[in-house]
Nucleic acid binder design. Sequence first.
DNA 1: CTTGACCTTCCAGTTACTGGAAAGATTACG
DNA 2: CGTAATCTTTCCAGTAACTGGAAGGTCAAG
Lengths: 129, 129
Amino acid sequence: MNIGSASSKSGLPAKTIRYYEDIGLLKPERAENGYRDYSTSDVHKLRFLQRSRGLGFSVEECRQLLALYEDKERASADVKSIAQSKLVEIDRKIIELRELQQTLKHLVAHCHGDRRPDCPILETISGEK
Amino acid sequence: MNIGSASSKSGLPAKTIRYYEDIGLLKPERAENGYRDYSTSDVHKLRFLQRSRGLGFSVEECRQLLALYEDKERASADVKSIAQSKLVEIDRKIIELRELQQTLKHLVAHCHGDRRPDCPILETISGEK
DNA sequence: CTTGACCTTCCAGTTACTGGAAAGATTACG
DNA sequence: CGTAATCTTTCCAGTAACTGGAAGGTCAAG
């Protein structure tokens, strides 16, 4: 499929998809006419990139994560250690998101339009309990 | 406190803290000697910035989130709508992180060193069920 | 057969840092 | 007290990850 379809299916702008090709993240086939031709598997990977980038992983980290699926000859110990360190990171991110969520809910519920002199919620945000 | 302490307490590099000041995110006091002087509240905000940036919110979004606490005169309807749209976003991010987590766990558990011709996990990652 | 929506490459601009130079301030050591 | 190490300051340049726009080729619809 063309880049436009790949874009709407993955949620990534066509510009970004071309950029990912430039930096060697994902190289699609080319049709006779020179157009990029994306497979379903390519779209899966693009969607994966769209998600993990949006969740705060760097492009280099995404490259590692993608490699977990693509580098079939890689030693399994390698795969495992990368995946596991990412799992720790993901756990942390989930916890932080829950805290942020709590803070915002608290704000919506309790700080409704009053003018706090020094909102105690800030301490919650900052993770100082 | 000096920028070095603020840096180690917030987890943000001093460079980044100065950059945030440049773009008007957080303006600390200045000591007699010209050194930046951060309050405990400033450090809370920096830590908050460190977290929300790491969770994939843009600097402009972080500016909005910070404003929820600082802009005490703001109409509460405004506050509520911003906070609520962020809550929706956070929910989505948590779900996506859980999916990513599942995928990686699956990989560690089931793809231990074999050479898959076409790993079915990719379909899971991509969110296509 | 042309109009409009695609696609291509290339180059410049933006966002959010990040590194390094040059110089002043502070602390720690002998 | 001198001086060396370790802050800190500003400024300017570089990098990462896009993003916009020009100039032009391709294609499906009327």
